[in-house]
């Protein structure tokens, strides 16, 4: 793996500040990347310091007594919270991350390029989708208006930033314009998280945008 999330992206994840789609894409990268899990754990430690730095807000009178009766009602033990990121990936997506791409309802967008929209509803929803790009096919050049995360699940692509293979994570700003081209022998399957619609350049791309529906 050569491309990783930026430190501020790992920190935003640790702070719980990413939207649902981006949080899922980042969690999927963390599932594959020990180094970034450690990075998230580091920024969670900053969260611990931030908690320590707060002046407490008084609990209402009798709060501790109410606590004990509440705790008494919930004696069953649960799982421990995970560290190095709260890995929480939808089951359907987990299969794809494990390399199982059967049963995806691909919708063709243009020649050699299809997509499948995934559910990423949360209180801060985003747009999450899978792209499948055949070898040699170039995506229309586009920017995003807002940050875009791309995680490669299978195959590889090349763009202005370099070569991206399985597990690589493109952490793009709104201003970045790129046009990835799938390379190698097999289709490139990647997971894309955005909050804002893609902005395609040029007429063909604008038509494509209508099909992508973003």
């Amino acid at each position: 793996m050569n491309h990783h999330p930026k430190p501020e992206t790992l920190a935003a994840y640790a702070a719980g500040a990413l939207d649902e789609a981006r949080a899922i894409a980042l969690a999927a990268h963390l599932a594959m990347c020990v180094e970034c899990r450690r990075g998230v754990a580091d920024f969670e430690a900053v969260g611990g310091l931030a908690l320590e730095a707060l002046d407490g807000e008084s609990m209402s009178p009798g709060a501790l007594e109410r606590f004990w009766s509440r705790a008494g009602l919930q004696e069953k033990a649960g799982a421990a919270p995970s560290f190095g990121g709260d890995i929480r990936i939808p089951e359907a997506l987990r299969r794809h991350i494990d390399g199982d791409f059967d049963g995806i309802a691909w919708k063709p967008v243009s020649k050699g390029f299809s997509q499948a929209v995934l559910d990423a509803k949360g209180y801060r929803s985003g747009a999450l989708r899978l792209f499948k790009i055949d070898p040699g096919i170039r995506m229309p050049r586009h920017s995003h208006g807002d940050a875009e995360f791309t995680l490669i699940l299978k195959g590889a692509y090349e763009d202005e930033l370099g070569v991206f293979g399985r597990g690589d994570f493109a952490d793009l700003d709104g201003e970045d314009v790129h046009g990835p081209r799938a390379i190698g022998e097999e289709p490139c399957i990647c997971l894309i998280a955005t909050s804002a619609p893609l902005v395609f350049r040029g007429l063909f791309e604008k038509i494509a945008q209508r099909w992508v529906g973003v």
């Binding site: 754990a41 430690a45 606590f67």
Partner: peptide, 29 residues
């Protein structure tokens, strides 16, 4: 959050996180 701390105290592992980090992560989630 404190109910979780009470119930899961046995699962707290100082090798993985400090207490305040642990509680921060529970509250955040």
């Amino acid at each position: 959050t404190m109910v979780r701390v009470w119930r899961k105290a046995r699962l707290f592992d100082p090798a993985k996180a400090s207490v305040s980090t642990w509680i921060f992560a529970i509250a955040r989630n």
